[in-house]
Design a protein around this nucleic acid. Structure first.
Length: 978
DNA sequence: TCCTCATCTAGTCTG
DNA sequence: TAGATGAGGA
């Protein structure tokens, strides 16, 4: 005996998702599910904090792994729909945007969980990875698909992931624009955990069966509803037990999945090829003939799902029978709208459907099962005929393309004009009768008259997939000797004989490369002992980088070289005399170097390091300088490297004067200049040189591009009306550069950095003062763009860490730190608790040590995948970093150069501000955007501001000015962005 | 110990 | 303008 079958729709959204109806709340969803005929509904948006809370409050457990509404909605339903309440399965859709193999990938995924706890754990692990889950129910995150799958599987043994609408060009696993050629490639080593894929609105199982690599996956369909009315427009039919685990097993290949309800694939928004704005709607063959170029605008056409299937297909059509039932439908309101000659979403249609449903039952039942005689009796003959044709597949189809839905029609226009829509029993239900108007047919009119355009194709433009060449390609040529991989001046510096050596290395000229090669050359080819070498940096990060690169050049002996920060060096010198020397207080840290100097003065070192290297020499302060003088005699083997024009730390005692008088301090010093820049495009380098020229500390300062690309874009200059406008500009540009973060995005700006190669992690936003970040973080987050702001203490900023520690002390006074934290984490599903677990485990029972670790911001981040995000940094923090795309914001007089109220900056201070501007510009590799706002609030008062005087130094020929946008209401701005 | 009021500051950061 | 801090009173 056949089992009862039932219908599931497992991909929907809540009111917390962008561009979704405010009606998407659980009671409404439950009502509409009943009206449509859905037995099991995904909750959608399970990662959104407010929605997850709503789910927790509104749902109660039902069958294993499923939920139902606590409160009954039976009173809202007509008798024809009475029956079992809808079940809910915890579900969500995640949009991942990330780079793999130098291409930006954008893939949407559906995730499912059997209980609220595991959904909470999943959420927590995303937050830990740095994802912003609050501003969109369908969050955009910078994680690799593979890592997302891993997090899903780790949340619960029975959690699972289904790739969403796998064929859409911009946002799917197999998408032509930013996906992969096989599902398995997308999920890498975890691919075996994928057992089902969602075919999406623009494809049906028949099309998918042409690609044999998909044979191993169950094909499912869902509505992806953005309003309750759109539920069940596609759906999946099961006959297994109504239970989370049975569904999961059915999706993994056990019996239970019986079929899908599908759009006619032509109706999908991305079925055919074309350009919406140009009115070009082509078949794949037409596109092929024109080499993919739009005859109207000359750009690449948006290639649809049909073409993409053709591209990956290894079977002819109809070669493989579908193992499951496929039912093609349009929605009931479309059928009635067509018959009535009114919009499918009109009141008239809604009223008629209410009447039909009250008499005949759920909409899907009416469309697929109700005897046509009954349909005719209640809804009229025309409706019965329409449904008959629908069930027989006798429909007219105008394919959708480039984001525009296709149109499916059941009747010829004359068939409807002749009829008077005499619909019998509708009168019984007192539905207001609307006269049949001339049919506006909005959608059809917009699409149908656009005939295929057959103008000759324009010359092809560069493919948007082409990755740009790595900047260092020319330098990386493999040679025989160590120094063969350096350019001429780098080689002079690296191979210089002993004695004092000063390397003046401009930004992007291979400073670290030169330093490491010199060290390696001395050890490997000049018989210098690695133990005699000391390399000093300012930051742990720089030390780590140096160690890493030395190891790759020298191999195991690299570890005999002492690489240390000034502080670490001082500490080790102090500990040599007093092994118990401890740093207990922060103010102690400042004393490290002076103490070491004292000590060396009393008891001079025996010059155990014959070769001393100092990075960023322009940033040394008096104590560091004293230490160096004590370690190195005036004729000693010291190699200092740096760039006086990047001296930006005078406020903490650094004095560029030490750099400038190196030749007086050390006898017969050699000076080598590195001026060949491998980092930035020619316009960026030219602008940087012009910007620093007025007060450069280097005579005849120059910087030469290693490679000249005539296509390199100019520097963008945006005069914003307000700081909100400035932030909006950044959000819009980021969206364009990554090629759109959502379906609504407009055309990509792919110059210089082609669209498919810019990821969020390639973009930095720089500013002078931390206060500027607020508006930018807010605007970018609201636009769904992941951001990371580097903070002084990386843990301090994370949600509620200090509150959490306080609570931990109160709530769980007993037990190890880890156990107490774990208890708290279980109680609250709190991301911050998870974040602290690695530290807690390391500290074991020692609460004080744990607190110390938290306070010093110990490295917890390295333990987990970090999501790609746009980096927000102060200009100071940006030193030493580089990004393909840089936004240098707040280029205003008073901010850059910075002026504090009541203080007139000295010429030296203004010069240092200019150096900061120089540092900012030279962080950019391919694209640089400068912006300033006409008004800015500082210290509580808004003032008119003028562009930075530094901008005037840059030749206007290097700049491309963007027009200021007309002021818009915030809501409009948001819609326009996405 | 907690609360209120006045005063000050608002900028960049690494160990 | 707003928040953080410290003094002083209840």
């Amino acid at each position: 005996m056949p089992r009862d079958s039932w219908i599931a729709d497992l991909h929907i959204h809540s009111k917390y998702s962008r561009a979704c109806s405010k009606d998407l709340e659980l009671p409404n969803l439950a009502y509409w599910a009943r009206r449509k005929g859905i037995r099991l509904l995904g909750t959608g948006d399970v990662t959104h904090p407010a929605w997850l809370a709503h789910l927790g409050e509104t749902l109660e457990e039902a069958e294993p792994g499923l939920y139902r509404l606590k409160e009954s909605i039976e009173h809202r339903l007509p008798p024809s729909l009475k029956g079992e309440p809808t079940r809910f399965m915890l579900s969500g859709e995640i949009s991942t945007i990330y780079k793999r193999d130098e291409r930006t990938r954008k893939v949407h995924h559906l995730v499912y969980f059997p209980d609220l706890e595991s959904a909470g754990r999943f959420r927590a692990s995303l937050v830990k990875a740095g994802c912003n889950l609050s501003s969109d129910g369908r969050p955009i995150i910078g994680l690799d698909s593979r890592d997302l799958l891993e997090m899903t599987l780790e949340a619960h043994a029975d959690a699972y992931l289904v790739p969403a609408h796998i064929w859409t060009p911009w946002f799917s696993a197999l998408g032509s624009k930013s996906g992969f050629d096989a599902i398995a490639d997308c999920y890498a080593d975890l691919a075996d955990h994928i057992t089902a894929v969602e075919t999406g609105l623009s494809s049906d199982p028949e099309m998918n069966l042409r690609v044999s690599s998909l044979d191993r996956y169950r094909l499912v369909s869902n509505s992806d509803a953005h309003s309750p009315q759109a539920l069940a427009r596609e759906a999946t039919e099961f006959d297994c037990d109504l239970d989370y685990y049975a569904v999961k097993r059915a999706l993994a290949g056990e019996p239970g999945l019986t079929g899908t309800i599908e759009f006619f694939p032509e109706e999908g928004k991305y079925h055919a090829d074309g350009h919406r704005d140009c009115g070009v709607n082509w078949s794949p063959a037409q596109t092929k003939a024109a080499k993919g170029v739009c005859p109207v605008c000359g750009r690449q056409l948006t290639v649809g799902v049909l073409a993409r299937v053709e591209e990956l297909a290894d079977r002819a059509p109809d070669q493989q029978p579908s193992p499951q039932r496929v039912t093609h439908l349009i929605q009931l309101h479309q059928v009635i709208g067509e018959i009535e000659g009114v919009g499918a979403k009109s009141k008239t249609v809604d009223g008629k459907i209410n009447a039909l449903v009250a008499a005949l039952g759920a909409e899907l039942t009416i469309l697929t099962k109700t005897p046509l005689d009954d349909v005719s009796r209640v809804g009229g003959e025309l409706l019965a005929e329409g449904i008959r044709r629908l069930r027989a597949g006798q429909v007219d189809r105008v394919p959708g393309f480039d984001g525009e839905y296709g149109v499916i029609r059941l009747f010829q226009p004359d068939e409807l004009r002749a009829s008077t829509s005499d619909d019998g029993l509708f009168e019984l239900f007192d539905v207001p009768r609307v006269e049949a108007k001339p049919r506006p047919r909005a959608k059809a009119a917009a699409v149908a008259p656009r005939k295929p355009v057959s103008a000759p194709p324009l010359p092809s433009i560069a493919s948007p997939h082409e990755p740009f060449e790595p900047m260092l390609a020319g330098m990386e040529e493999v040679g025989t000797g160590l120094l063969d991989r350096l350019d001429a001046m780098q080689r002079v510096a690296a191979s210089a004989p002993g004695g004092p050596l000063l390397i003046v290395a401009g930004p992007g000229t291979g400073k670290t490369r030169t330093l490491t090669h010199r060290l390696a050359y001395l050890c490997a080819e000049m018989n210098v002992f690695p133990e005699q070498c000391l390399a000093i940096t300012f930051t742990r990060r720089a030390a780590e980088e140096l160690r890493h690169r030395l190891a790759s050049l020298l191999g195991p002996v690299a570890k005999d070289v002492t690489v240390a920060t000034f502080h670490a060096l001082a500490l080790s010198l102090l500990r040599e005399r007093d092994s118990s020397y401890e740093v207990t207080e922060e103010t102690d840290l400042d004393q490290l170097v002076p103490r070491a100097v004292e000590l060396l003065r009393e008891d001079p070192d025996k010059l155990r390091w014959n070769w001393v290297f100092v990075d960023e020499y322009q940033d040394v302060d008096q104590h560091q300088y004293d230490l160096l003088r004590l370690l190195v005699p005036p004729d000693g083997n010291i190699c200092a490297i740096g760039d006086p024009d990047q001296a930006i730390y005078s406020f903490r005692g650094a004095d560029v004067g030490f750099f400038l008088r190196f030749s007086q301090d050390f006898e017969d010093a050699r000076v080598v200049r590195l001026t060949r820049n491998y980092r930035s495009s020619a316009p960026i380098i030219a602008a940087a040189v012009q910007a620093i020229a007025p007060t450069s500390l280097i005579k005849g300062r120059r910087l030469d591009p290693a490679k000249v690309d005539l296509e390199a874009p100019l520097i963008g200059l945006y005069p914003a009306a307000s700081t909100a406008d400035e932030a909006g500009f950044i959000a819009k540009k980021v969206d364009e550069l990554v090629g759109g973060v959502s379906h609504r995005s407009k055309a990509a700006d792919t110059r210089g950095v082609t669209g498919a190669t810019v990821g969020f992690g390639d973009i930095a936003v720089l500013y002078r003062t931390d206060a500027q970040a607020t508006a930018i973080v807010e605007t970018l987050s609201r636009a769904g763009i992941p951001v990371q702001k580097r903070s002084h203490n990386r843990l301090k900023d994370r949600e509620g860490v200090s509150a959490l520690i306080h609570e931990m002390r109160l709530a769980h006074p007993e037990g190890s730190v880890a156990a107490r934290l774990k208890k708290l984490a279980n109680e609250q599903t709190w991301a911050a608790a998870d974040l602290l677990m690695p530290l807690a485990q390391r500290s074991g029972h020692d609460l004080e040590r744990f607190l110390a670790d938290v306070a010093t911001g110990a490295e917890v981040d390295a333990l987990d995948p970090r999501a790609e995000a746009v980096t927000l940094l102060t200009l100071h923090a940006a030193k030493g970093l580089e990004f393909p795309v840089v936004f240098l914001t707040g280029c205003e007089d008073g901010l850059l150069p910075l002026r504090m109220p009541g203080k007139q900056p000295t010429d030296d201070e203004i010069a240092e501000e200019r150096r900061l501007f120089f540092v900012g510009i030279t962080r950019a590799q391919r694209r640089l955007f400068l912006s300033h706002s006409a008004r800015r609030t500082r210290f509580g008062t808004e003032r008119e501001t003028r562009p930075s005087p530094f901008l005037a130094a840059i030749d206007s020929g290097l700049l491309e000015s963007y027009k200021e946008e007309a002021p818009r209401r915030p809501r409009d701005l948001q819609l326009r962005l996405l």
